[in-house]
Amino acid sequence: MRTFNWAILGPGRIARKFAADLAHVPGAKLHAVASRSLAKAEAFAAEFGASHAVGSYEELLAVPGIDAVYVATPHSEHHAHTLLCLRGGLPVLCEKAFAQNAGQAQEMVRVAQEQGVFLMEAFWTRFFPAIAQALELVQSGVIGEVKHLVADFGFAAPFEPEGRLFNPALAGGSLLDIGVYPLFISQLFLGAPAAVRAVSTPTGTGVDANCAMALAYASGATATLFSTIAATTDNRCVLYGTKGQLQLLGRFHAPTGVRVQLLGEAEAQEFPAPTAGGGYQHEAAHVQQCLAQGLRESPLLPLAFSLALMELLDAVRREIGLRYPGE
C-alpha cells in the first residue's frame, strides 16, 4: 500500500485531533509540521511521530516528500496559507470555513486549477458514514418531499477579545466558526436558497455571538438555522418531510447514525453508523483516494459546493452587517 505523507500547517487544537486520527487511516503518515514557533512544531512532531518540523510556513515548501498539507490556521489565514502551498505545488486540505469571504475562496480555486493541484475544504461532516446514509434515505423519498430543515450549533465560550473566536482580525464570531455547519447541512440537503434572512447579537468586539438564519428555497422548502458562542445548544438537525422526519443522531456535525420517524408509525427506525477515532480520518482517507486517482478536486465535496457555501456565508454577513478588517 502506498504511504501518503501528510504535513500540518498550524499545529493548534483541531490539528491535534486530525493528527491523532491519521492513525486510523491506512497508508497515512504525519511527515511534517509547520508553525510560526519552531519549538511548538518540534513538540507536535515529537508527539505524533513526524520526521520534519519547521519554524515558518514558508519553510514547509522545502520539506521533501509531502503528499498533502492540512491547513489548520485561523479563518483569516486560510487564503494566504492555501495559496502558499498551492503555488508550491502541494495539494491542500483547508479547514473550514474555506476562507474569510467568497472572493478569497474564488482565488484559491483559480490558483489550484491554474497549478493543476488538488484542493478541498476540510468539511469533515461530509464524510461521516451517517451523512451518506441520510442522503440516500432522503433522496430515495423515504420521508417524502422535504418541507423544512432545522439545525443548531452552540457552545458557551469565555469572552477573550484577542482570542480566535472574538477577534475580528481573525474573522471571529459564531457564524464562520460554527454557523457554517447549519448552513452546510442545509445546502447539502436542500441546495442553494432563493432567499436568505438573518439577525445577530454582537459581542463586545463586534463579531456575532448569536446568529439566527431563515432560508427559503425554490422547491417550497424552508430552513431555520442558528449558531451561538454564548450558550450550549442541542447541536441537532432534523428534516421534516411530507411522509415523516429524519434526524441525524448525536451532534449533527459529527453524527453517529440516523433516526427516521414515519407518519402513522409508532416506532422510529434507527440506522447506527459508528465511527472509530474522532471522525477526521474520513476526510483524510477521502483525500488520499482522490490523490491516488489523480483527481484535482473531490467528487463528494467539489470546489463549486465550497464556493457556493462561502457565497452563502457572505450573504448572511451582509444581512447582519458584519465586516472583517480589510474587507
Rank of each mutant, 00 (worst) to 15 (best):
A151T: 05
A151V: 06
D152L: 10
D152T: 12
D152R: 10
F153E: 12
F153G: 01
F153C: 12
G154T: 08
F155A: 13
F155L: 12
A156M: 06
A156F: 05
A156T: 08
A157N: 12
A157D: 11
A157K: 15
P158Q: 07
P158I: 07
F159L: 08
F159Y: 15
E160Q: 14
E160A: 11
E160T: 13
P161E: 11
P161W: 08
P161L: 09
P161G: 08
E162K: 14
E162S: 13
E162R: 12
R164D: 05
R164W: 02
L165Y: 13
L165P: 00
F166R: 01
N167C: 12
P168Y: 04
P168I: 09
A169W: 09
A169E: 15
A169K: 14
A169M: 08
A169I: 02
A169C: 05
A169N: 12
L170F: 00
L170C: 00
L170W: 00
L170Q: 00
L170K: 00
G172E: 03
G173H: 06
G173C: 02
G173N: 03
S174T: 15
L175C: 00
L175S: 01
L175F: 01
L175H: 03
L176K: 10
L176F: 04
D177C: 09
D177Y: 12
I178H: 12
I178W: 11
G179R: 07
V180L: 15
